[in-house]
């Protein structure tokens, strides 16, 4: 259980986290979603006491993180990959971490097994790939077999097999009744893993709801239709709230009418329809809709500058 109340963090004039309140409950995977620079990592660092809040308060399992007598047994955190000395081996790193809590070496070997680090455990962490670094971070988070697991961008740099493994791990931990708090800027990953979403943008909470609710509320269902007479079908469907978009000469994307209604309209108008695919509103759409105004770093198409043109000519 993680409870944040009016939590904020300012770095000089810049406000990274702006008075957010939320609760992460046990028994489910809570996703923490937001664009880069939205304040996800800062929030997680405050949860485990690395950063002091400028205002407000955050507690884990009822206490401030630093007040726990056995913090690693309460909370396991993967904050960023490779919070590890590059010249030390993974095994020795875990051993040093475990020693602070009197966690036996048998548990160290266990988490190495669990995270698939066995073959590289005795090697220097400096030579690890990003994915191996992530696995080590996760191993470290699981060391104390904690009630609460916080993973900041855990799938970063993992191969598809690793991504799937993290997904199963998170769900498994939640199913055992633990609190799982998972951050990501990848909406697709969240859609597959999280039960509940907290969406953050520019240091503020934009949404805090079950994932299904966020999908229903913000994404409209669309249907992909292939027909040899799109104009006629659009006319037949013309009604309030039905909009369509012609993507290809014979391909339409219709919003505001379900596939049954489209089929009925087509039948009534004797229009040939050869594809009718309901498209689930993607979390991505919902997310984009939620965060368009909250993105810190927009990508812009660069205007064609004279200098650029010059370079083109120079080639």
């Amino acid at each position: 259980m993680i409870e944040a109340v009016d939590l904020s963090k300012r770095y000089g004039a810049k406000t990274a986290v702006d008075g957010i309140s939320f609760t992460v409950k046990p028994g489910r995977v809570t996703g923490f979603l937001g664009p880069n620079g939205a304040g996800k990592s800062t929030t997680m660092r405050m949860i485990v006491g690395l950063d002091n809040p400028s205002g407000g308060d955050v507690r884990v399992n009822g206490k401030h993180y630093a007040q726990h007598s056995a913090p690693l047994r309460e909370v396991g955190a993967l904050l960023d990959a490779k919070a590890v000395h590059t010249k030390r081996s993974a095994y020795n790193h875990l051993r040093a971490m475990a020693a602070t809590h009197g966690i036996p070496n048998s548990r160290v070997r266990e988490v190495i097994e669990m995270t698939g680090l066995g073959p590289v455990a005795k090697k220097r962490v400096g030579g690890f790939s990003l994915g191996m670094g992530q696995r080590l971070g996760i191993a470290c988070a699981l060391l104390g077999d904690p009630h609460t697991v916080i993973l900041d961008e855990p799938v970063n740099g993992l191969d598809p097999e690793g991504v799937q493994w993290v997904r199963h791990l998170a769900k498994g931990l939640a199913a055992e009744g633990r609190t799982v708090f998972l951050s990501s800027h990848l909406m697709s990953e969240m859609a597959l893993t999280a039960d509940h979403l907290i969406v953050i943008g520019r240091g503020r909470i934009i949404a805090d709801a079950p994932i299904s609710e966020i999908l229903d509320g913000h994404g409209q269902s669309r249907t992909r239709v292939r027909t040899d007479n799109p104009a006629e079908l659009v006319r037949a469907l013309a009604a309030d709230g039905v909009t369509s978009q012609q993507l290809e000469p014979e391909l339409l994307e219709i919003t505001g009418a379900d596939s049954r209604r489209i089929a009925e309209a087509a039948l009534a108008g004797r229009i040939l329809v050869y594809e009718l695919t309901p498209l689930q509103a993607s979390l991505e759409d919902a997310y984009m809709q939620l965060t368009t105004d909250e993105v810190e770093y927009h990508s812009h198409t660069l205007p064609q500058s004279p200098a650029g043109t010059g370079a083109e000519e120079g080639r």
Binding site: G102, S106, M114, L169
Partner: peptide, 26 residues
């Protein structure tokens, strides 16, 4: 790489209880 556990098995849970009985940081 292929060998990765997905969920703690009973052995882990037993180890957990053993580990959790010890006090924390000193």
């Amino acid at each position: 790489m292929a060998h990765t556990a997905t969920a703690p098995n009973p052995e882990h849970t037993a180890a957990r209880r053993g580990a959790a009985s010890g006090p924390g940081v000193n």
